[in-house]
Write a protein that binds this DNA or RNA. Structure first.
Lengths: 222, 222, 222, 222
DNA sequence: GATGAATGAGCGTTCATTCAT
DNA sequence: GATGAATGAACGCTCATTCAT
């Protein structure tokens, strides 16, 4: 205390600034792994290498910590998707594929993939948080996808569909895959292979969307 | 009350016989509203108008209560689906439609529709419950759907697809709809209309599945 | 109710009179096996083949049931011992042996052997019950044994000892054996063989009591 | 308080260091008074002047708290006995006396004396506790005593006896004395005087054990 | 700023006791 | 007399939150 500690002080300062990020990373890990209620702040603190009391220096409560975790999670990924759409040249089917597979690589297959499950699980208990997540992530994702579908219809590449519902149907199997992998996957004897699953989904959905010159073998919609 | 009750059908007896159903109804309400972990047995009891101890006359534990809710709610729905498949005559596309819309009427649009979200949310923290649900509901549901797809392929009505993945893709938008309605639906300015959504899903998926005699207008990504 | 039931009524009456004894037998079994607190009245009732409520027709409370069990258990055995002492002719050492081995046969090795452990365990929590047991069983047992020792000393067969303490020392290994068999016996790799144990006890105690004409090899009490 | 405390030895730190001992003391009091099952952790906490939750900062469970009481109380006494045996020079009869009287001073006559009764009472319902106590206390105590008897026989000071049973007979009156003092002693009009009782026990048992050059006056049951 | 000991409300579960039938 | 459904107080244990240091 009386002697100068040049090295320690340097490290200390760095730690001090890095603290919130470290806490959020630890919290993300545990929230994703166990859910909100089952995550103990003791464990979050231990994983971040601080004491439990320290958490309260940075976050007012467990709920606020949770909110902070969510806020920092998915928005950047959405933004990359938006840039991908804006810069695209080529068929819309190609773009749809790029988006879906890219989303899988960046979000689905990473730590972030646990967040959507978390949000579905807790949305009802944290309405304010749900609203935030809906505005910052969900609605932007749908808007992004909607633009692709709209443009495809405008160009005549896709059949005419009700865009709002179609985007949800396109996304549903992706969301479902995420939820599955963070819930029942361990119980499942016939594990889903994500690559195969996603390719099949794209194949089916593009068949459904694509404009055809000939009617299929059996007419469905009279 | 107006009809005579010849054999000890007093008020007390009627209560006794009605109890389990009352308890299950109260439990379903609260489980769906708050999730498994967050539901207090005290609240379940109070909602059913009994004391907490009474719950334990009928159910061994909270988990058993939950299982009973599943057994009384979703399992019968699955069984009706199985009978529907066995007794069906006609095209498989028709059957698929009947199953999907019937499921929506019976499960999705009722109180029971909250269960799947709950299960996704809690599966990791209650593995015994997840195993139970997987065996009694999920795997049976997929087997049921798989039989329809297999038969469709055998008859040449459907294109050849990998059944295990296809069933999941068929179901994903249904499950997604449920999850949505029990989570972000309240945030959504562009509310999903279930009927429209389901019709679109079926239309797209059947287009994807149906065997075609001519190639579509655009080749599937060179 | 309107028709006469001669056979059933006969059985009923017999049952009715036998009830208290059946309940006490069931309670003894369970109290001895599990102790007072750990015995559930549900189990007592089930073992006796009646409903839980019926217990309360015969006994005011769990404590009263417990007292009734004790009252019926050991007093007759004490009385047999008293008659044995009164009718005895022969050496006092012989009598002491007869009493000890007889007690082992009748009490220690039977169901009743569990009662002393029970009483030691619960005496402090049920002072009134302890007083009852002390007066009806313990003090009579000691008086009985004291008479034997006194007579032995009077006749010059036994060394002069302080009778009150000696009786306790004579009985201690018997009581200890009982307690042991109802507690740690299952943990013990070197099981006590009751016969050997009791013979050794008698041998040692009789050696200690018996009047000697010669001093032992090493003097103990200067 | 009067002496300076150079390094963070504030009141709080002193409390922190003293806590476990305070908790163990409170637990010992209540366990001895009421038994294991009947002791409420709430009461233990209140007696130690802390909240219930605090107990769990120091002890994992009620059983662990109990084990800690044993470890801190009886195990050290056993260890002192073992050192006494190892360091002893002189006759074995002397050693036996020292052990018995020392045990009475340290264990029997203190708060710790209530533990054995408690263990006999609860052994069957808490097998894990019984196993622990048997291994840490009972078997070590018997081994200690067995060594004394064996050595006495080897040296020719004691008669040849079956050691396992003899140790139990030697200890039985000591254990009995403890049980008595914590159960029926309050009912007893002829209170046992521990000193007299123990001296008589030792006298009798040493007479029984000691090798004699002459046969006693009366043959052991003709 | 950081700590971690301490709290206390609350949970799932049990069971002696009651009482309408 | 007999039943067994119902009660409710209590227990062991947990954990988000606080605060003296």
């Amino acid at each position: 205390m009386t002697t100068p500690q040049p090295r320690q002080e340097g490290r200390w300062t760095r730690r001090k600034n890095a603290r919130p990020a470290e806490l959020l990373a630890a919290a993300l890990d545990l929230f994703v792994d166990r859910g909100f209620a089952a995550t103990r702040l003791d464990d979050v603190a231990r994983r971040a290498g601080v004491s439990k009391g320290t958490l309260y220096l940075y976050f007012e409560s467990k709920e606020e910590l949770f909110k902070a975790v969510i806020r920092g999670g998915l928005v950047p990924a959405i933004e990359r998707g938006e840039r991908m759409v804006e810069g695209h040249t080529g068929s819309l089917a190609e773009l749809l594929e790029k988006i879906i597979l890219g989303w899988w690589q960046e979000v689905g297959n990473s730590q972030l993939g646990g967040i959507p499950k978390l949000m579905f699980a807790e949305a009802k208990n944290f309405p304010e948080l749900a609203r935030f997540y809906y505005q910052e992530v969900i609605s932007r994702g749908y808007r992004l996808l909607g633009r692709v579908l709209d443009e495809g219809q405008r160009r005549g590449e896709f059949a005419l569909v009700e865009t709002d519902h179609a985007t949800r149907i396109v996304l549903a199997p992706l969301v479902f895959l995420l939820l599955w992998r963070h819930s029942f996957d361990v119980c499942d004897s016939r594990r889903i292979d994500p690559e195969t699953y996603l390719r099949l989904h794209m194949s089916l959905i593009l068949d459904g969307l694509r404009v055809r010159t000939m009617v299929p073998a059996a007419a469905h919609v009279g």
